[in-house]
Design a protein around this nucleic acid. Sequence first.
DNA 1: GACGCCAGTCAACACCCTGTCGAGTGGAAT
DNA 2: ATTCCACTCGACAGGGTGTTGACTGGCGTC
Lengths: 220, 220
Amino acid sequence: MTTARTPTGAAPTRGRRPGRSTGDDRELAILATAERLLAERAFGDISIDDLARGAGISRPTFYFYFRSKDAVLLTLLDRVIEEADAAAGDVLDRLAEDPRARWRELIGRFHATFGGHRALVLACAQVRGTNAEVRQLWAVVLERWVHAVETAIEGERRRGAAPDGLPARDLAIALNSMNERVWYATFAGDGPAVAERDVVDVLLDVWLTAIYRTVTPPQA
Amino acid sequence: MTTARTPTGAAPTRGRRPGRSTGDDRELAILATAERLLAERAFGDISIDDLARGAGISRPTFYFYFRSKDAVLLTLLDRVIEEADAAAGDVLDRLAEDPRARWRELIGRFHATFGGHRALVLACAQVRGTNAEVRQLWAVVLERWVHAVETAIEGERRRGAAPDGLPARDLAIALNSMNERVWYATFAGDGPAVAERDVVDVLLDVWLTAIYRTVTPPQA
DNA sequence: GACGCCAGTCAACACCCTGTCGAGTGGAAT
DNA sequence: ATTCCACTCGACAGGGTGTTGACTGGCGTC
């Protein structure tokens, strides 16, 4: 469920290029600066110089720690994904207990995680269009989540709680996609969007009707 | 339903700044070059110089015709939106005839329109993150479509074909959002995506279950 | 305790792209 | 013939990225 990691516990190898460790704080300072700046302006309006100055170093030195501006975002994204995976936990394994409550828990926890890093999430969504690495990372993560939901839907069908219908994978893709875009609109606040306090319930309702054809699926 | 336009019939005022008309072909050449180039590489990898050279003019001359690279995209987007509006027509007014068939027609036509300009649509989705004008245009258009769907759902509820449930607007937002993101994934081809030949049916199924709680809604 | 190594640092440079300015040019209207 | 203006582009300024090459200081080694 979680990605491979280096012995140090840090993300794979997105940070410092090859070597080791002492200017760890610098690296952390860059990441912190990025998340702070992201809260006040768009990713595209943040220059590498801003990141470097914010961390108390010069621009060339920045390149000692990260390959590019995007690499910083990638590292930050890694963390949020890890947080989301942890928050989701094993709810999907306990669906039969109380399907509605469990699905709500799942959606609610993702909502809380993404909502806690909205600036970062919005920046990633933007950069995904232009940066192959972010696109790739997101694709892998999404594939994992889609697969988990697909399996859960098949489980519900097998135990007779959900009717047959669309291929479970297609349904899982559609529902995950909906969540992604709806959250984006809600957090970005431009264009038509569901109010933040309602968004979990709205998403839940569509999930339940699409999976069970009812908003009150049967328990075990 | 359609946006205000100038007497000439060209899009509002995205193209040539103030004046009139003779270098019309240059303007058209820029637009054509943009759509051609978009088919072979990402928007960010196309420079204004590429556009200008492609249209047989110099870079400064480009600025006589368009304010920026993004303005070109905006003009192109205007056209596709117009095409989509035309394709959608009044299907939503004839829902009661055969709800499933009409909803399918609606989704199918949007699919065909966007699919016919996939490179452009993908570019717009990317740029929306960084360009306020594209974001704004898309927000306005989406609001119109959401509103149309919202009204249709309310109509179906009123005539007893659809049960009450989520506020129609929230449901309309969620479903439109899903379509947008699912199409994006299908056209972009990275990450988990529904196969192009299935995508209309998958979307339709989720729409019907969310709106009617069944995939076979009652006719008039 | 001199020596070398290497993580870490930055001034300066080369490059690319954007947007603007000002000086043209040629055809249509007067 | 003159004026006007749509249209054109060479040349510049500005800002961002990524790289190079020289320098520093701590630490292990002989």
